[in-house]
Amino acid sequence: MADHRAQVEDLLAGYRRSREQLGAVQRSLATVRETVTSDDGRVAVTVSASGTLVDLAIDDDAYRALRPADLAALIVRTTAEAAARVNRQASEVLAPVLPADSDPAALLRGTADLSDEELAPEPEPDDDPQDETFEDKSWMQSGGTRHARRI
């Protein structure tokens, strides 16, 4: 009986250590931010560890110097760069608590250890409009006779 109690205590102690470590990692990830300024200095973006845009600063001159589509593209490019950088930082925070053969960046992307085949989108169902009928199906008809309805 004492052996079982000791095993349970060991398991609970391990569980508590894991929870404390997970909490520390979550707190560290919550502080990870990356700010990137575009090459021309007109746009600065800040993203969180999850790649979420948390701040956007646009120089007043940007509205006059760039067409809206060009400004939008600049914002997207700058945000993508910040997201790539913050992913590297978050990977470094996460790596020590993962198994040695894990890829922290893949885990953060949500792909973990899935193969390319497992990540491929499901094929769309083959909807053939010729398969669709507008027949009147009635259980009251004897012999299963169907009558087409004209529309």
Rank of each mutant, 00 (worst) to 15 (best):
S142I: 11
T46D: 03
A65K: 10
L108P: 02
A84G: 02
A57M: 02
Q21C: 07
D101W: 03
R77Q: 12
D101S: 13
T145E: 15
L114N: 04
T145A: 15
M1W: 07
M1L: 08
P96F: 08
R19K: 09
S91K: 02
Q26V: 13
A148T: 12
A6T: 11
T35P: 02
A95Q: 15
D55M: 01
D126A: 12
E92F: 07
P129M: 02
E132M: 06
V76L: 12
A120E: 12
G51R: 06
I151V: 12
D61S: 10
V43K: 03
S115D: 04
A69H: 09
E124V: 11
T133D: 15
P96G: 08
G14E: 14
D136H: 15
E122S: 09
E118V: 00
S102K: 01
D70I: 05
G110W: 04
T79Q: 14
P129L: 04
Q130T: 13
A6Q: 12
A105T: 10
L74N: 02
V8L: 15
D39C: 01
S18Q: 13
E20C: 04
A148D: 15
L114F: 09
E118N: 00
V25P: 06
A73G: 08
Y63K: 08
T78G: 07
D127C: 06
R19Y: 06
D128S: 08
T46C: 03
P96S: 10
H4T: 03
V8S: 00
S50Y: 03
A72I: 03
V25L: 10
